[in-house]
């Protein structure tokens, strides 16, 4: 079996191929040889935890760029990028009214690549909101919410609101005039909920105005609560794409 997978060619190349992709360590990690044959190409997708979100084969219309414009995938890239840059920002950020603003300001002046990390996080956050909207438009205008994918559309709408909530909670963290007033405006909207407006506003803020309690609440939701929730719904979302028969295409 192993012999038939080896590419035909000079002896040196075959020897190198065997040493690199058929040794004990490579096999222990990847189980299959280098994905240069159809068999190994299917095995690499089926046996790799990250790649197995995909089926091993897909219909050829699905790789056409105009079919999806990669929008769902780009949204997921945004989530990954935001996680990476977000973790790096957490190294330098203390969520207290005394330190928050100066910590963010220090990213610009004291920390190498701090401003790059903050810029990336900011622009990717805006980008994610935009790409979620575009993805929703793509799914709608291609009729991809139709049976049997109704429930996945529902999960998608939940992910849309979670994205907005993630962006909104992150908006407060720099603790500058833009953030505190944007959140005050947003929270005043929550305060106009019929019958229980004051209560819901109080619960979200942990007080009557945007202060230290609100900052720690928003921070906790932003860095762990909402991302965890979003990750769970994303897992369901991706799982259901495969369970519902891959991307929608004409019946």
């Amino acid at each position: 079996m192993a012999v038939s997978e080896q590419p035909r060619g000079p002896k040196l190349a075959s020897w190198l191929y065997g040493k690199l992709f058929h040794n004990y360590i490579w096999r222990s990690i990847f189980r299959s040889g280098y994905p240069s044959t159809p068999r190994n190409q299917m095995l690499v997708v089926a046996t790799n935890v990250f790649l197995h979100l995909h089926p091993t084969r897909i219909h050829k219309t699905h790789v056409r760029i105009t079919h999806t414009y990669c929008l769902g995938g780009i949204t997921f890239f945004f989530f990954l990028g935001l996680t990476v840059t977000g973790v790096m920002l957490m190294f330098y950020y203390v969520p207290s009214p005394e330190r928050a603003f100066s910590d963010v300001a220090a990213l610009e002046t004291n920390i190498r690549f701090g401003m790059l990390m903050r810029n990336l996080h900011r622009w990717m956050a805006h980008g994610m909101v935009i790409s979620v909207f575009l993805h929703m438009m793509r799914v709608f205008y291609t009729g991809s919410y139709k049976a049997p994918r109704e429930f996945n559309w529902l999960v998608g709408v939940i992910l849309l609101t979670l994205t907005l909530a993630l962006s909104f909670t992150g908006y407060l963290l720099p603790w500058d005039q833009l953030s505190i007033w944007a959140v005050t405006v947003g929270m005043n909207m929550a305060g106009s909920v019929p019958l229980m407006g004051e209560q819901s506003r109080f619960i979200l803020l942990g007080g009557f105005e945007v202060g230290d309690a609100a900052l720690i609440r928003f921070y906790t939701l932003h860095v762990i609560g909402l991302p965890l929730l979003a990750a769970i719904f994303m897992a369901v979302h991706f799982w259901r794409i495969r369970r519902d028969g891959g991307l929608a295409r004409p019946l």
Partner: peptide, 28 residues
Amino acid sequence: LSTILDAPLLNEANLDITPNPSKAAWYL
């Protein structure tokens, strides 16, 4: 993009100074 364009950072938060206009985040 992030090398060219810096994310905005205004003055430190102060509930006593109300910017006019004060606006919600763009998606709200």
